[in-house]
């Protein structure tokens, strides 16, 4: 049980990292990672939404969608959108500073593919509630890790002397490629 849970957690966190190995949530990965603070805060907000989604998806799969599996995608997206709305209202009420900093990227969590991907894979892999929550935490921390690393590299990049041509997306993608290569090293953990 414990071994299984920790395997789910670490494989999602490092080996199948949502951003660097599965190419999920790239919009925010390239969009907000200019400052370290916003990077990890968005990661935290994402983790929170991921965990809530995992619970909601488990409820949907167990009690609601058993008779109508073809409504899966629609049901998931509606639930995710409402969840993000609730989180947004809560942050606006209790953490107004964070709310201003995240700005447009908070509602955009709805269309972050990582959230819907989690909902869909949790269903196809048949995870139960506990496994689902561990999967969500692993995925969320993986996202946070990737966002923070990328933001810290890009903060350094601002003062570095790079050719004008590479100042935009090109160089950022090549850095992402190197990070992804580094994370591939974790794949060995699976066989060991």
């Amino acid at each position: 049980m414990i071994a299984n849970l920790s395997w789910i957690f670490f494989s999602t966190l490092l080996i199948n990292n949502f951003t660097l190995a599965m190419f999920l949530g790239l919009c925010s990965f390239f969009g907000v990672t200019t400052k370290m603070d916003t990077g990890w805060r968005l990661g935290a907000a994402n983790t929170f939404v991921l965990v809530m989604t995992a619970v909601a998806v488990w409820v949907l799969n167990t009690f609601v969608l058993t008779t109508a599996p073809y409504l899966r995608t629609i049901a998931f997206i509606v639930v995710i959108a409402s969840l993000v709305q609730i989180v947004e209202m809560a942050i606006k009420k209790f953490l107004p500073v964070l709310f201003r900093e995240l700005g447009i990227y908070l509602p955009l969590i709805t269309t972050n593919c990582a959230i819907l991907y989690l909902a869909l894979t949790q269903t196809t892999r048949g995870y139960n509630l506990i496994e689902g929550i561990f999967y969500a935490i692993g995925g969320g921390l993986g996202l946070t890790l990737a966002l923070t690393l990328m933001a810290s590299i890009r903060e350094r990049l601002d003062v570095a002397d790079v050719p004008a041509l590479a100042k935009r997306m090109g160089l950022v993608l090549i850095i992402a490629s190197c990070m992804s290569m580094a994370f591939m090293g974790f794949a060995g953990m699976g066989s060991g």
Partner: peptide, 16 residues
């Protein structure tokens, strides 16, 4: 996966 990021990056550099 890294090849995906790299090809995309090279494509953006070429476009630029």
């Amino acid at each position: 996966p890294p090849g995906g990021f790299l090809s995309m990056g090279l494509m953006f550099l070429t476009m630029g």
